[in-house]
Computed example of a mutant assay.
Amino acid sequence: MTHRTLYLVTCGAPLASRIGDGVRAAREQGWDPYVIPTDAALPWLDGQDVDEVPVLTGNRKPGDPKRTPKADAVAVVPATFNTLNAWANGNANTYPLTTLCSALGSRIPAVAVPFAKHDLAGHPAWLASLAVLRYGGVTIIDPHTGSNSSLSPVESGTGEEVSAAFQWDWVIRNLDS
């Protein structure tokens, strides 16, 4: 099995509690995962089995070598309102956003699993950002169903339930298509 490099960007929402499962699912399908959490995602990583993979935070210092091989694909699980909008707008002011913007500009295959409540998903910037990312080739996956043709917001208070039912195969399958 040929190993490919997968950047797993994770944001601060309940689905980040499953990133260890994503690491295992990626490895089973021949990916070498690198976890790139936002600052808000860091608390969600506590107690997860991610010690055997690189977890990259912060930008490199001048003169430091590159920390990862070139990505063959990128998955953003979960993609929060803030990160998704910043990515679509080209804001590369953090390491995770720089990684996402570079991937989009390089046309590296990307999958995003948006995780936003109704009030945030109702903001006009949300639909515009989803459209920009889809135009750029990003596959958007519904966290409830795995659909890549429709997307429903996460009802307030159901984040843990949605996260528990989430299937990482939905992401991995879309990386291979």
Rank of each mutant, 00 (worst) to 15 (best):
R4M: 12
T5Y: 09
L8W: 05
V9L: 13
V9K: 06
V9G: 10
G12Y: 01
P14G: 03
L15N: 02
S17G: 03
S17E: 03
S17W: 09
S17R: 10
R18F: 01
I19A: 05
V23F: 10
R27C: 11
D32L: 11
D32I: 14
P33D: 06
Y34A: 08
Y34M: 08
I36K: 00
P37M: 07
T38R: 06
D39P: 14
A40W: 12
A41E: 05
P43N: 08
L45F: 06
L45E: 01
D51F: 09
V55K: 09
V55G: 13
T57L: 12
T57D: 09
R60K: 11
P62K: 06
D64L: 12
P65A: 12
K66Y: 13
R67W: 10
P69S: 14
P69F: 12
P69C: 11
A73T: 01
A73W: 03
V74E: 03
P78G: 01
A79M: 09
F81T: 05
N82P: 08
L84W: 01
L84H: 03
N85K: 07
A86E: 09
W87V: 02
A88V: 02
A88G: 02
N89V: 13
N89C: 14
N91Q: 15
N91D: 14
A92I: 04
N93R: 07
T94E: 09
T94A: 06
Y95I: 11
Y95L: 12
Y95H: 11
T99M: 00
L104K: 06
G105K: 02
G105Y: 03
G105L: 08
S106T: 12
R107E: 09
P109L: 00
V111Y: 01
A112W: 01
V113K: 00
P114I: 03
F115W: 10
A116S: 12
A116V: 10
H118Q: 14
D119H: 15
H123N: 15
H123K: 15
H123F: 10
H123L: 15
P124T: 11
P124G: 08
P124D: 09
W126P: 04
W126Y: 15
W126S: 09
W126N: 07
L127G: 15
L130F: 07
A131R: 10
L133S: 05
L133H: 00
L133V: 01
Y135L: 13
Y135S: 13
G136D: 06
G137H: 03
V138M: 08
V138I: 02
T139W: 06
I140W: 00
I140Q: 03
P143V: 01
T145P: 03
G146P: 01
S147E: 07
N148S: 12
S149N: 15
S152E: 10
P153S: 11
P153L: 09
V154I: 06
E160S: 09
E161F: 09
V162P: 00
V162T: 05
A165C: 10
A165S: 08
F166D: 00
F166I: 06
Q167K: 14
W170K: 00
W170R: 04
V171L: 06
V171H: 02
L175R: 02
D176Y: 08
S177I: 15
